[in-house]
Amino acid sequence: MIEVTGVKKTYRSGETLVHALRGVSIKIENGEFMSIAGPSGSGKTTLLNLIGCLDTADHGSILIDGTDISTKDKQELALLRRRSIGFIFQSFNLIPVLTAFENAAFPLSLLGLEEKEIQRRTMEILKEVGLGDMAHRKPAELSGGQQQRVAIARALVKDPQIVLADEPTANLDSRTGQEILELMEGLNRNHGTTFVFSTHDKMVMDFARRLVLLHDGLIQKDESQEPSLGASTTLATGVSTERQGG
């Protein structure tokens, strides 16, 4: 579980101060499928970065499974990210010299797992995202949607506690974007992995079971909703009981 309490973040750009977050509190339960929405500049990326331990808050606290991340040093945070947090980026950020398989296997290589184990788990997740037969392709030989699938596989392969996705569909056409969201939703149900993704696209927001609306660095709305597509079989409480392991 992740608890964000009274978080503020101010950027200084030259003389002016930009209050990106002005006191944000949310609780994210394990297994949620949640969207952080809001107009450009509302603080979505800032919030995701704070939850993802990529940046530190000026005020307030963020607890991950009861531990305040501000008590951890740079190295401990890196280790936490390596083990427990998966990232999906808007621009995919795959390593161009590596194949789809190698990209997806990257987090496991970092964890120093056995080669056999890496092989097994990577192939499994690649099949799950529908790229079982494209494992040997380089990112340049894949479409945008396929690249984002590799990125999703990379985020999920280590079975993280939470996957953070900053505008995962913004670089894709709406059809492909929808496929990606359906894939994420399916993985959320099958693996019980928490997903938090940001967007300013109405269609994408509707996919979430919980919608947090940011405006000018403050939470305007935070409510559970009936997901629009594909997710109809899941309860709208946003809490899944299927989560397996840590």
Binding site: L54, A78, R81, R82, F87, N93, F106
Partner: peptide, 16 residues
């Protein structure tokens, strides 16, 4: 540099 940012986001240490 973006690649380095991605490496760090994924928990690679500076040393690595």
């Amino acid at each position: 540099i973006r690649e380095i940012g991605m490496f760090r986001a994924m928990g690679m240490s500076d040393g690595e």
